[in-house]
Amino acid sequence: MAAVLVSTTINGDAVEFACPPQESLLAVLRDRLGLTGVKEGCGTGDCGACSVTLDGRLVCSCLVLGAEVDGREIATIEGMAENGKLHPLQENFIEHAALQCGICTPGFLMAAKVLLDRNPQPTETEIRYALAGNLCRCTGYDKIVRAVQATATELRQLEKKKSRRKKSKKS
C-alpha cells in the first residue's frame, strides 16, 4: 500500500508526515518525528508507556494508525513542560520519587494530566483506576499515587489563589 500524507498538530505545532497506512502512530512519533519520549513497552495497548492525547483524549499511540490523525491534535510528553517550566506533575514526580527507572514515566504523566484536567479532586481509588492502564514495575505505584495527590492539592490551591486575585481585582 502506498504511503499516506498526513497533516496534523503535535504539541501545538503543525506537522506533516508520510507513512505506510498500516504504521502505528507510535512508530510515526518515535521513528519518523524523533519524539522518543513516547515509549514502546508492548505494542498491544497493555502497558500505557506510549500514552499520548488525541484531541484531548488519552490513547495508546500503538493502537492508533498514523494515517488516522490527519487534522487532529496530538500532545506528547515532549510538550508537557511549557515555556521552559516543568508542569507541576513533572515537578512532583521528581520530588516524590514517583519514578525509578523512568521508562513508564512519560505515559503516567500523560494519563495523570488527563485525569487532573477532568477531575481536579480525585480520590485515591479514582487515581488508581485512572492509572490502571499504565504499568510500572519499579515503584509499586505508591509514590506515583502520592505525586498525583500532591499535584492535585497544589493545583487546587493555585486555582483558589487565582480566583481570589480575580475577585479582588473586580472589587
Binding site: Q22, S24, T44, G45, C62, L63, V64, L65, E68
Partner: peptide
C-alpha cells in the same frame, strides 16, 4: 473495518492478520 482499532491493531501487530484494505468509519 477500522473503528477504535483496539483489537484490530493488536492483531496486526502480532502478525495474525495482514489487511489489504482498512476502512476507517470514525
Amino acid at each position: 473495518v477500522l473503528a477504535g482499532g483496539t483489537d484490530l491493531l493488536v492483531r496486526m501487530k502480532l502478525g495474525h492478520i495482514e489487511p489489504a484494505l482498512l476502512v476507517d468509519i470514525k
